[in-house]
Design a protein around this nucleic acid. Sequence first.
DNA 1: ATGCTCTACCCAATCGTTTGCGCCAATCGT
DNA 2: ACGATTGGCGCAAACGATTGGGTAGAGCAT
Lengths: 346, 346
Amino acid sequence: MAGDGGPVTLRGIAEQLGLHVSTVSRVLNGSSGEQGRAASGETARRIRELADELGYRPNPHATSLRTRRSNLVGVLFPRLSEIVVATIYEGVEEEATLRGLSTFVTNTHDDPTTQRERIGMVLGRRVDGLIIGDAHLDGAALAAPALDGTPFVLVNRRTDTGHPAVTCDDHLGGRLVAEHFLALGHRQVAVIAGEPFASTGTDRTTGFTDRYREAGLPLSAHSVRHCRFDTAGGHRAAVELLSGSDRPTAIFAVNDLAAIGTIGAARDLGLRLGEDLALAGFNDTPLAAELPVPLTSVHSPMAEQGRRAVRLLLRRIAGEPIASEVLRPDLVVRASTGTPIGPGLR
Amino acid sequence: MAGDGGPVTLRGIAEQLGLHVSTVSRVLNGSSGEQGRAASGETARRIRELADELGYRPNPHATSLRTRRSNLVGVLFPRLSEIVVATIYEGVEEEATLRGLSTFVTNTHDDPTTQRERIGMVLGRRVDGLIIGDAHLDGAALAAPALDGTPFVLVNRRTDTGHPAVTCDDHLGGRLVAEHFLALGHRQVAVIAGEPFASTGTDRTTGFTDRYREAGLPLSAHSVRHCRFDTAGGHRAAVELLSGSDRPTAIFAVNDLAAIGTIGAARDLGLRLGEDLALAGFNDTPLAAELPVPLTSVHSPMAEQGRRAVRLLLRRIAGEPIASEVLRPDLVVRASTGTPIGPGLR
DNA sequence: ATGCTCTACCCAATCGTTTGCGCCAATCGT
DNA sequence: ACGATTGGCGCAAACGATTGGGTAGAGCAT
């Protein structure tokens, strides 16, 4: 029962029991070694009993002030309204809760100024570490001097600057799609490559193009189109690709949203998916399967990335040596890549 | 330059300047009234100069401990991976940042136990208030005794228990769809109604059914199907509705995800959208426009709900009297509701 | 009786801010 | 010239928890 006269504190409990606050503190919070030495079994029992009768909850501000540990982590993402990101965050939250951490999550819209601002903001809140999901390949925002000292790990996107990261093996994902297209006999293909600063897009793209090059069918420069990671961006890019003279028979969109934009473009141009045009996306979002023509997509373990990022960060905070982790994707073939248009190629 | 020897504190600044920490505190933080009386203009200037040369950032734990105000708010949602929710959260975050608040946001999966747990968790973090986006109509989780004392407002969903809320006028949204269907001549219609505990679904449904009843065409009980707010749920419900004997010519799905599930079902049953079946969704998510057959949907101001919820909460925290707010939706007609199948009805 | 070791506690400093009050000197009113 | 202001600060007590040191008494051996 709270409300007897202000929130219940260690001191309140100590006074009611005629004990000293330090004794109560040790019983309620001390490392199990201390617990024993702090009070007799009987006293400890009385303390614990009263504490939960009163609904005692330690004041985190006081604890953090004293211990210099906040059990807070900052989480940065471009935009949570993208389902991929939101799903990663679900994993982050799940694992964080399990470990007694709370998270500040914030949208940076991939804008470097906002990124720096938000990093400053969470640092101001004295987080113990950060999980950064909006890294740009050049790692620019991570060079912020303010960051040094505070541990962080990347998730979803890596940088070229070698910060520890948990990612999907995007390069492999791209290869899987290429492999599939090749098996179907597609020789004229294109990539909707996403933003050039995001490793997800570029790695998936190079995975794909590498495989085609190995097959002796290198992609021309104009068959790789960058665009925003959303439906509108995918739509525009697809229109450009599909209205040229040498129209591709298959398109790899590096994420499902761009793929959906591509579907819109194909519709506008009168192309039938899986027949006139093969299309593959990435991330296997729940929508992929429900589309009128179900979408072939690369499945990536998103929530798992989030969980692992938390664990990795925790190890880093503890000062243990850590290494980046790469998770394995796999291809889910559906109707949008239709049937072979020619003999398989190798 | 941080790192000269621990983080920079008021005391550090005060000592370097030969002043007392209280003076520095007042200059840097005092209400503008205090600022003037705290130090001479010259002294104030020196303080401010040194403070930002050293990159001083007040320790929020110390401040919160002392002032009993954390500038933290807890935000509860069923799942952030739903785009509607994520968009509302973007509004929340934007406004919160503007007001100097930070947010803890958490997913409760609409599970009452988790809801209570998470409420306990954010309360344990000593938030100044909560924004609750996962309310159930019965308001059960909000009766938690722990909550009393901490101000909160609802967003997106209201309860029957009269807590202050910011919502879309869902009832009106449902009416708009009914109006549209009636104008197209649909007499046999059905609703995919979402979860029965969420006001969004039930209000949209009754808005719709009320209008049809007024038109002299009351819906039969089995033309209203509850389901989960996701594509799979929509799919199942649609299959049930569409494989019965008196198949509806138009379906109102109370959110876009359920609508997309319906599209999948229609596809499986060989029904052409906008021709054999009219379909309308709700929320006008970015996908709606890109679908092969663009989806008619009710547009609702989602981010704005989030922003208003923050402002409302702030007023409540300040002890001002507040009232619920209802935002106006509007209908966006696209190809999925096709052309009239008969003379318009009234 | 003396010294030792436990057990079961208590003491007090500390984390970094905020804020009511007090104090000294200079200025003002008369 | 003398008391009353007021400008410009300093003092110290909080806020609630943690933690390195006591210390008093009991029990034991010498």
